[in-house]
Simulated scan of single mutants.
Amino acid sequence: MIFLNAEVISGLGEDTFWTWFKREFPNSAFAIPQVMYPNDVVLRYSTLGPLNVFPSKSIALLWELIPEMKVVFSSNEWDEKIKKINSTAKYSTYRVVATPLAKKYYEQFGSVDVIPIGVDTDLFSPSGEKKSLRNKYNLPLDKKIGIWGGTTHPMKGFERLKKYAQENSDIYWIIVWKQDSEASFLNGASNFVKVSQQQLAELMNAADFYLSCGMLQPFYMIEWEAMA
Score class of each variant (00 low, 15 high):
residue 47 T to A: 13
residue 13 G to K: 14
residue 197 Q to T: 02
residue 121 T to C: 09
residue 57 K to W: 11
residue 57 K to Y: 15
residue 74 S to T: 12
residue 207 A to R: 08
residue 175 I to F: 02
residue 137 Y to D: 00
residue 126 P to S: 00
residue 142 D to W: 04
residue 31 A to G: 03
residue 59 I to H: 06
residue 189 A to N: 06
residue 51 L to W: 10
residue 176 V to H: 04
residue 177 W to E: 07
residue 216 L to Q: 01
residue 163 K to W: 12
residue 8 V to D: 06
residue 139 L to C: 03
residue 91 Y to F: 15
residue 187 N to M: 06
residue 13 G to W: 02
residue 103 K to A: 13
residue 207 A to Q: 09
residue 160 R to N: 10
residue 141 L to N: 05
residue 107 E to N: 11
residue 181 S to L: 10
residue 141 L to S: 04
residue 215 M to R: 15
residue 174 I to Y: 07
residue 85 I to H: 11
residue 15 D to K: 15
residue 28 S to G: 05
residue 40 D to N: 02
residue 19 T to Y: 02
residue 52 N to A: 13
residue 146 G to D: 07
residue 121 T to G: 10
residue 223 E to L: 13
residue 165 A to C: 06
residue 91 Y to V: 07
residue 148 W to A: 07
residue 178 K to W: 15
residue 219 F to K: 07
residue 60 A to G: 05
residue 109 F to T: 01
residue 83 K to C: 11
residue 86 N to G: 02
residue 213 C to S: 05
residue 214 G to C: 01
residue 120 D to W: 01
residue 40 D to M: 08
residue 152 T to N: 12
residue 189 A to K: 02
residue 218 P to Y: 10
residue 221 M to E: 05
residue 109 F to W: 15
residue 24 E to L: 14
residue 200 L to A: 08
residue 18 W to D: 01
residue 58 S to D: 04
residue 215 M to A: 11
residue 146 G to I: 13
residue 176 V to W: 05
residue 14 E to F: 04
residue 114 V to C: 03
residue 189 A to F: 14
residue 89 A to F: 14
residue 68 E to A: 05
residue 146 G to Q: 02
residue 158 F to T: 02
residue 146 G to T: 00
residue 123 L to P: 02
residue 8 V to S: 10
residue 177 W to L: 04
residue 124 F to H: 03
residue 105 Y to A: 02
residue 140 P to S: 08
residue 84 K to R: 15
residue 112 V to M: 09
residue 138 N to P: 09
residue 121 T to N: 07
residue 10 S to T: 08
residue 226 A to D: 10
residue 161 L to T: 00
residue 64 E to P: 11
residue 93 T to F: 11
residue 162 K to P: 09
residue 137 Y to W: 10
residue 35 V to I: 14
residue 147 I to S: 05
residue 140 P to D: 04
residue 85 I to L: 08
residue 98 A to W: 14
residue 50 P to K: 13
residue 228 A to L: 08
residue 215 M to W: 12
residue 220 Y to F: 15
residue 48 L to G: 07
residue 118 G to V: 14
residue 83 K to V: 15
residue 112 V to D: 03
residue 39 N to M: 12
residue 111 S to G: 02
residue 136 K to I: 12
residue 54 F to C: 04
residue 198 Q to P: 05
residue 71 V to N: 11
residue 29 A to T: 07
residue 129 E to I: 09
residue 119 V to Y: 04
residue 198 Q to W: 15
residue 173 W to P: 07
residue 16 T to H: 09
residue 219 F to D: 06
residue 168 N to S: 05
residue 106 Y to R: 03
residue 121 T to K: 10
residue 218 P to M: 13
residue 205 N to Y: 13
residue 68 E to F: 11
residue 47 T to P: 01
residue 116 P to R: 02
residue 71 V to T: 06
residue 200 L to T: 06
residue 75 S to V: 13
residue 22 K to I: 04
residue 170 D to P: 06
residue 206 A to P: 12
residue 227 M to E: 08
residue 27 N to S: 14
residue 148 W to K: 03
residue 107 E to G: 06
residue 24 E to M: 11
residue 111 S to K: 11
residue 141 L to F: 00
residue 59 I to C: 05
residue 105 Y to Q: 01
residue 140 P to Q: 03
residue 84 K to V: 11
residue 7 E to T: 09
residue 210 Y to G: 03
residue 95 R to Y: 13
residue 66 I to A: 04
residue 196 S to M: 09
residue 151 T to L: 00
residue 192 F to L: 09
residue 148 W to V: 08
residue 6 A to C: 10
residue 11 G to C: 09
residue 55 P to A: 01
residue 86 N to S: 11
residue 86 N to V: 07
residue 10 S to Y: 12
residue 116 P to H: 07
